[in-house]
Simulated scan of single mutants.
Amino acid sequence: MDARVQASFLKALERLDAEIGDALEPRLRDMIRLRVSHLNGCHGSIRMHSEALAQQGARHDLISALARPARQMREGLVADGDAAALRFAEVLTDAPRGLEAEAREHVGAWFNASQIGAIVEVVAITNAWNRVLRGMD
C-alpha cells in the first residue's frame, strides 16, 4: 500500500512541533521524543532523536536506556524529575493502560503545570509524527 499524506498536513505538524514544549529543557524534550518513538516502533524517529541527543552530548548509555521502560533505568542515569517525565510520557503513549494517577502525581512533584502541559504536547506531537511516518512506510 502506498500512502500519501497531504503536504499541508505535514507542514501543520512541522509548525506545531516547532511551537510546543518550550517549557522543557531541549534535552528532556528529545529524551521524551526518543522514548515515545521506541514505544511506537518508529525506527526513523528513533534514529533522528538518538542523533539529536548525541549532538547535545548525551552519553551512549542514556540513549540506549531510553529503549527500555523508565522504571527499568539504572539509578542515577537520569535525574528523578526526568525519570518521572519519561514515565508520564510512557503512560500517555501506551493507551491500553490509560493514564495512571500515580504517574500524574509523581510528575507533578517535579514539574509545574506549564511544564506538565509541555510534556503532554511533546508526547502528542511525537505520537502524531510516529503514526504518520509509520503509515507512509
Score class of each variant (00 low, 15 high):
Pro96Phe: 13
Arg47Asn: 12
Asp30His: 15
Val91Glu: 08
Ala23Trp: 00
Ala103Ser: 06
Gln115Tyr: 11
His38Asn: 06
Ser50Trp: 03
Phe9Gly: 07
Arg27Ala: 15
Ser50Ile: 02
Ser45Met: 09
Glu105Leu: 02
Ile116Lys: 02
Arg134Tyr: 06
Asn130Gly: 07
Val36Cys: 03
Asn40Ile: 02
Val36Tyr: 02
Pro26Gln: 02
Leu10Met: 02
Ala70Lys: 05
Glu75Lys: 14
Ala12Asn: 13
Gln6Leu: 14
Ala83Arg: 10
Asn127His: 05
Leu13Thr: 00
Arg74Ser: 14
Asn112Leu: 01
Ala7Arg: 14
Leu99Asn: 00
Arg35Asp: 12
Ser45Cys: 15
Met31Ile: 10
Thr93Ser: 02
Ala113Ser: 12
Ala109Tyr: 06
Cys42Arg: 15
Glu75Ser: 12
Arg97Glu: 07
Ala124Val: 04
Arg71Val: 15
Leu62His: 06
Val78Asp: 12
Met136Leu: 03
Ala54Arg: 07
Glu105Ala: 03
Ser50Asn: 05
Asp80Met: 09
Asp82Ser: 07
Met31Thr: 08
Gly98His: 05
Asp82Lys: 05
Cys42Ser: 15
Ala103Phe: 05
Val123Gln: 08
Arg33Ala: 13
Arg29Tyr: 03
Gln115Met: 09
His43Phe: 11
Arg97Lys: 05
Gly21Val: 00
Gly76Leu: 05
His60Leu: 06
Glu102Tyr: 08
Leu24Arg: 04
Ser64Asn: 14
Glu121Asp: 11
Arg59Trp: 04
Leu16Met: 11
Ile119Lys: 07
Asn112Phe: 00
Gly57Lys: 02
Val5Tyr: 07
Glu19Ile: 04
Arg131Cys: 04
Met136Lys: 04
Phe9Met: 11
Arg87Val: 01
Ala84Asn: 03
Arg104Ser: 03
Ser114Met: 10
Lys11His: 06
Asp30Gly: 11
